[in-house]
Structure formats: structure tokens, C-alpha cells
Simulated scan of single mutants.
Amino acid sequence: MEALEETWRNLQKIIKERELELQKEQRRQEENDKLRQEFAQHANAFHQWIQETRTYLLDGIAYRRVIRVYQYEVGDDLSGRSCMVEESGTLESQLEATKRKHQEIRAMRSQLKKIEDLGAAMEEALILDNKYTEHSTVGLAQQWDQLDQLGMRMQHNLEQQIQARNTTGVTEEALKEFSMMFKHFDKDKSGRLNHQEFKSCLRSLGYDLPMVEEGEPDPEFEAILGHCGSKQVSLREAVGLALPTPPSCSLHLPPPPPRDGHVSLQEYMAFMISRETENVKSSEEIESAFRALSSEGKPYVTKEELYQNLTREQADYCVSHMKPYVDGKGRELPTAFDYVEFTRSLFVN
């Protein structure tokens, strides 16, 4: 009987110890679950912010207004009908907005650090699963780094467009059209077009590319790819195209970059800018180039500005053929030349 009572007491002790262990494990599991939820809350919000910021950068920034763009691409989902495409404000306003957004991206690194600390705490607690989120610290860190790189590329691209507008006479409207068409065909918001998307984009912009079967040679398109990533055409080359007998200013292009089956936004814009500059045909376009050359967009250009921005041969030609600028009161300004009259005279039949 005494042995039975001792056994009963031991059993009660074991049951109590087990209950304490279960309570401790329950508290541990509850704490782990709270840690999972806290990590998921921050990770999900951070991922959503990444997606929204990426879309914000790629779809246009600040001062948005809706315009109608017509597509005629065969096989495109917009064939034969119009679509609504967002157009942003001035290039300068877009650049400023992009810089502010990039500063925000850099500031969000602290939020990523908090997520990484929570992830480290989960690892220390041997938490290997999380039913509340599909995101990991490694994946979010990679996405943040890609977003940071995208912000820098977008800044560079806008600076490239501003430089092109100011130094080649390519209009801001043309640059916006190029950018919007790229964004339309960039379906996955990657900032790159594969070759088929690039072809569709070019056709929508009026390029008459031949239809070839897959695997067949396409020399015309290959030539275009060879120009993608080439250096931008300079002001002196653009103005040189306006002269009736322009001095030699051929553009020496470096070898094209290694191809990976895609064309980046930067390469695409460089190509479109170079094509637009090479096809300068109207007096208005040439006037725009000289206006960009002149300080504050004045209707005249100085001798100093000509020699600072053009080759000596081009500047000599302009100085010898441009008439002195006369203001509204009939006064002739020293070392100022009338580029408007000069440009229009080039296009007189």
C-alpha cells in the first residue's frame, strides 16, 4: 500500500512538471507566433512599399495628366483603338521627384535593418517557417538593392534626356513620347524590353521593320541593336547637320555592349535620341538647337557661345554667314548673331 501511495505521489509530481513544461512551451510558441506576426507585418508592408515605389518610378512621376495615344501594332492588345497613357510633367520636375523618391529609398534602409533584426531573432529562436508571409530577409534585401539601382538609373536617364533636349534640339514632347512608349511595352516593369517588345515599340513609333520568322536573320533589326547603348549625339553634331555643307562631324560609335537579349531604358533612349538628331530636317528643329545653345533661350547667339559649343569649322561658318542681331529698336548688338534668320535661310528652296 505504501509503495502504491509513493507511486501516486510521483505520478502527480510528474504530471505537474509536465504541465509546467507544456505551459512554458505554450508561452514560447505564443512568443514565437508574435515574432512571426511582427516580422510578417513589417515584411509585407515593406514589400508593398517596394512594389508601389517601383511602379511610381517606372510609370511616371509628379504632375500627371492623361493623354490619348494611338497604337497600330498588329497583334498588340491596343491594335486599332486608343489607350490612355499617363504623361508626367517637365523633365526637370520628374528629375526632382525622382531624386526625392531615391532619398526615400535610401532612408528606408533603416526599415530593412529592422526586418533583418527580426529575421535574426527568428533564426535564434529556431523559427524556420512563417505562415503569415512569403517574404524573407534575403529576398527583401535583394529587392531593395534593385530598387536603389533603379532609382539611380532613372535619375541618369532623366539627366540624359535633359542634356539631349538642351544640346541637340530634340523636343521634350518627343522625349516624353519615347519614354511613354517604352513604359507601355515594359509589361513586367523591369526597366528593360526583350527584343520582341523592342520591335513592337519601334513599330508603334513608326519604324517599318520587316516581319521575319523566328530564327531567321533580321539584319535591319540587328543593325538597330548594334546602335543601342552607343554614345549620345552632341550639340555640335546636331548643329553640323543643319549646315548646307557641314564640316566632317561623323559620329564614331564604340562597339555595342554585350547583348543579353534585352534593351534597357537608357540604351533605348540613347538610340531614339541619336535617330531623332540624325533626322533633323526642319528649320524649327534647328532653331531649337540654337536656342538651347543660347543663354536663356534668347533669339540670338553670341560669338563666344558658338566657339564654346561647336567645332571651330562650324563656328567659323556660322560667324561668316549669320547676320548681326538687331533688336526691336534697330540697335545692333555687338558679337550677337541672328540664328533665326540664318536657320530659315538654310531651308529656302
Rank of each mutant, 00 (worst) to 15 (best):
Q51T: 14
D77G: 06
E92G: 10
L265R: 11
N157S: 15
M154I: 13
S248C: 09
E313W: 02
Q26S: 10
V170R: 00
L205D: 05
L205S: 02
K34S: 07
L209E: 06
M1W: 09
T7D: 08
R9F: 12
P217T: 00
L202F: 06
I15S: 12
E305Q: 11
E213Q: 13
L251N: 13
T90Y: 05
G328E: 04
K176G: 13
D76M: 01
A141N: 07
C228A: 14
G206Y: 01
G330A: 01
E104D: 13
R165V: 04
A43G: 03
R27K: 13
S88H: 08
R165D: 01
E296T: 09
M269W: 03
S288N: 11
Q196I: 07
D117N: 12
R259A: 15
A121Q: 15
Y63Q: 12
E5P: 02
G229Q: 05
P299G: 05
L158F: 12
T7E: 15
V263L: 10
L202R: 06
Q314C: 12
R100M: 09
P255N: 08
R106N: 12
A164D: 01
G297I: 04
R27L: 14
Q142S: 13
S230E: 06
E25T: 08
H227I: 05
R203Y: 01
K199Q: 14
Q308F: 02
R54M: 04
Q103H: 10
A107G: 07
A336K: 11
A242Q: 07
D117F: 07
F290E: 05
Q149M: 10
Q37H: 09
D218F: 01
V239D: 00
T7K: 14
T311N: 02
A223P: 00
M84P: 03
T133S: 11
I127V: 08
L243G: 05
E86F: 12
G191L: 02
R203Q: 13
R27N: 09
Q71I: 10
M1I: 01
D316M: 01
E216S: 15
S93W: 03
I14E: 03
C228D: 02
D316G: 05
G80N: 05
A40T: 04
F39W: 00
L58C: 11
A107C: 07
P219A: 03
Q51P: 05
P254W: 00
F337Y: 15
S93D: 14
L91Q: 04
F46Q: 03
Y56H: 14
T53G: 03
Q308Y: 00
K329I: 00
K34L: 07
P247M: 02
H262E: 11
V239I: 15
F182M: 06
Y72W: 10
S200K: 13
H184N: 06
S283E: 06
N309I: 01
L158I: 13
R259Q: 13
M211R: 09
Q142M: 09
R203H: 04
D260F: 10
L22T: 06
N279M: 12
Q196V: 12
T55F: 06
Y325M: 01
Q232R: 13
G297H: 08
I286S: 09
R259E: 06
K13V: 09
S248T: 10
H252D: 13
D76S: 14
S79N: 12
T245E: 12
R27W: 07
Q155H: 10
E177I: 14
E87R: 15
